[in-house]
Nucleic acid binder design. Sequence first.
DNA 1: ACTAAATGATACTAATATGGTATCTTTTTA
DNA 2: TAAAAAGATACCATATTAGTATCATTTAGT
Lengths: 139, 139
Amino acid sequence: MKGKLITRDTDYAVRALCFMAINEEEIMPVDKLVEELKIPRPFLRKIMQMLNKKGILHSYKGKGGGFALSVSPDRIFLTDLIEVFQGPLKLNECIFKKNICPNINTCPLKKRIDKIEDYIKTQLQSISLHSLLEKNSKI
Amino acid sequence: MKGKLITRDTDYAVRALCFMAINEEEIMPVDKLVEELKIPRPFLRKIMQMLNKKGILHSYKGKGGGFALSVSPDRIFLTDLIEVFQGPLKLNECIFKKNICPNINTCPLKKRIDKIEDYIKTQLQSISLHSLLEKNSKI
DNA sequence: ACTAAATGATACTAATATGGTATCTTTTTA
DNA sequence: TAAAAAGATACCATATTAGTATCATTTAGT
């Protein structure tokens, strides 16, 4: 199965943000992150721009500029990042679609898949950037 | 998010097998399923051949032939079908891969994603074809 | 034996998502 | 005013998903 819960851009975002959380004193230019984390530069730039647009980062243009967290690491959750890059977490569409399923509201499969999805959401919502750093002093 | 837990072929397989489970007296030719379920014929044929190869269906060639369940509906689980069409359920690779994560074995994120994956597997393993039919007399 | 109705096998195609590149513009500071 | 940064945007490569097309083989019934 290739369908991932976390795609590459979300992955890179987590790494970059973790690194920034550890070194929070600095305004971080993309080039430094690229050097430290070995992430392809143009791709990471796109990711950082996205995080800026979504309000998770603040950007400083011009020489000496870069990015800084605009939200505390204990208020950034995996669900937030997944939503930024992958859209709303939605793992299922009712398997018995209209015309075929006579009673979509009582479809037992849909209910059970929804329950799984709710669990996943709850879990991902409980994983903050901060909690990822607690036991790992370095990335 | 486009990453699905259940892809189209698995979806169609569930529908076809449910229909067959309800009409279990018959040897079911693909054309009848196509007519009933409005699934694209060549695609469904491929799906049925796959289920046959994996031992979930038995096939009867020649005129009057078709497919029949070779496993009881209460012994066919969603995980089985997902595995047939999507391979082993695996929703994550450690987000901090080698070279970057210094301590892959204690990575708290990996542990938590693994826990989510285990839960999903357990749930999907508990959903049998039979259990999908219980509350729906027709598909 | 012949034909129609079925599956087996397999190769091809189209659409979409993912994982990037490349390039040009704008802003800021030294 | 030049260098170093981000902003914007268009493009490209690859993989996966979803589906088609075709020909060969098997079998039942006449």
